[in-house]
Nucleic acid binder design. Sequence first.
DNA 1: CTGAAAGCGCTAACAA
DNA 2: TTGTTAGCGCTTTCAG
Lengths: 347, 347
Amino acid sequence: MTETIPPRAPRPARGPSMADVAERAGVSTQTVSRVANGLTNVEPATRDRVLQAMQVLGYRPNKAARALRSGRFRNIGITMFTLSTYGNMRTLDGITVAAAAAGYSITLVPVRDPTQEAVSSAFTNLVEQAVDGIILLIEAHLVDNSEVELPPGLPVVVVDSGARADYPVVDNDQTEGARLATQHLLDLGHDTVWHVAGPEGSYPASRRHESWRDTLQAHGRAVPPLFRGDWTAASGHALGLEIAHRPEITAVFAANDAMALGIMSALHESGRRIPQDVSIVGFDDMAESDSFWPPLTTVHQDFDLVGQRSIEILLEEIEHAPIVPVRSIVPVRLVLRASTGTPPHAP
Amino acid sequence: MTETIPPRAPRPARGPSMADVAERAGVSTQTVSRVANGLTNVEPATRDRVLQAMQVLGYRPNKAARALRSGRFRNIGITMFTLSTYGNMRTLDGITVAAAAAGYSITLVPVRDPTQEAVSSAFTNLVEQAVDGIILLIEAHLVDNSEVELPPGLPVVVVDSGARADYPVVDNDQTEGARLATQHLLDLGHDTVWHVAGPEGSYPASRRHESWRDTLQAHGRAVPPLFRGDWTAASGHALGLEIAHRPEITAVFAANDAMALGIMSALHESGRRIPQDVSIVGFDDMAESDSFWPPLTTVHQDFDLVGQRSIEILLEEIEHAPIVPVRSIVPVRLVLRASTGTPPHAP
DNA sequence: CTGAAAGCGCTAACAA
DNA sequence: TTGTTAGCGCTTTCAG
């Protein structure tokens, strides 16, 4: 469907420079620089001539040269796995908006796989970008692994991969979230709670898993075997088919909303009622969760705040201080909707 | 929850330069440059000494200086509204991956509102970024408006805002998608099809709307009044409540999956059955649509391909040709699932 | 295989 | 208010 593009002469590599503008306006480059930077000590008449020359020539400042002089790029690098999960996408959104408000732009460096090699190579890549600081949003244990060398010499903030003590970290309160979810189901009268976890190697998945287990143990409840998903609704659906066959399962805590959706779909298919037969709690509070059927009880994460905090800490580092191991935990809350209820009577 | 960060001495602005490495290795900066760029004409022993010096000093190349010399940044700017819609997010993902494969990184410049001012100011911002080209992903009529000056002097590709003839455009086949959706419902035997549209000012929303209308007219069917949503599931839910009260509505084409989800949720709430009472078709084919209840019949968009095409065309422009008004339409397809069926018998 | 020189576009510091 | 000088870190060109 793409029409072919005829080959052409290469476009000229460079646009007009300050020198060109200066020549056309009959002033020095310095004066052009002053105008470009909005300094006031320029005769209005001169300024106008310069402005006009810029206009005519289509001048735009060369950021590379500026950065070369100043040593600053006003740009922040972000490493992340492809934006395929809701949480990552929303966090990126929050970071981008907060950065823009502070006058910084964002450079994305994707990581293909969660392998140590891919991560290390992304770090190398990142360090060679024109960035003043780095946000790591890869939510993998790998980051936690001290074998992985974090990018050196640059301010770094780690999001959602929290155990490293040597770097500042911003993290949702995974532990509290999973506790709230599990506790809620126990409070409704369920004997125990089953868990559909996120993939191995994911830091948030592990934290939610551990907190679910700890909460059950704290109440002296049996800890059922784990269901292992991969964050997708499809994986939730597959596991949900299994869950539907087991009448002893009356309460499920899914590690994210997409998997919860898949589970609910499998339960519907199998003729099991929600929440009369099985109660479900998710994690994320996607914009759509309120429109799931039934509306999903879930743990709300404040992604915008995560983004804001990350930028705040990173800019502090960039502009004032060397790396400081701050640890910022963003609170979560349980949103009660219709997917949870009291357990069915014993058969 | 954030521990306070004590004020510190500002971090040193610059890291070690090539000159530092050269001095430590006892060679010229030129040799260091050769090693840094992986050129082969360096004695292995020399190379090793240089590499070691880099290691010790923690050298990283200064991209600004490099860009200043080469006139190229290997960086692409993207303007978009905050990533709150599925389609935008997936397209960004596709673009990022395709760009990374070509050795380019991505700089994000968010646009707050769909006002002419905000868009223009984002363009200005973008032009001053260190980018070699620009992708406009703001899917608004504004872009189409020739009053809005597109960023001058830089290669540009416009995604999903297609009527401008003066710039290359990549667009999903909105028209064909809406036609497929509407036709499918008519083929099932529905007298007519109602439409829940996206927000005014959105280019894809308009195209889907027009194509829905045209398809009905081509079949000599009544064109019912429009329902107007804003892409969110919440807006779909609100309109769905109204739809549920109208037994004459048996077939609905929603302009995206999120709104379709909201509509379905409202229908469930109101005790209307899908598809026995009302059939629904969406647009997007979100990863989750297959797990909606019932699984959603929808129009699949190939976002990865959109990303690939955009990058392909933009790089062609950057590396070879001046701006060429290519127009690339990415095909869509209808995915049949369980939310559509024959109309109910007349009462 | 290695080095010296020049200059990319810009701005800080100084001079006029 | 305006101009001159120098140099940020790197790579291209030309010599050795």
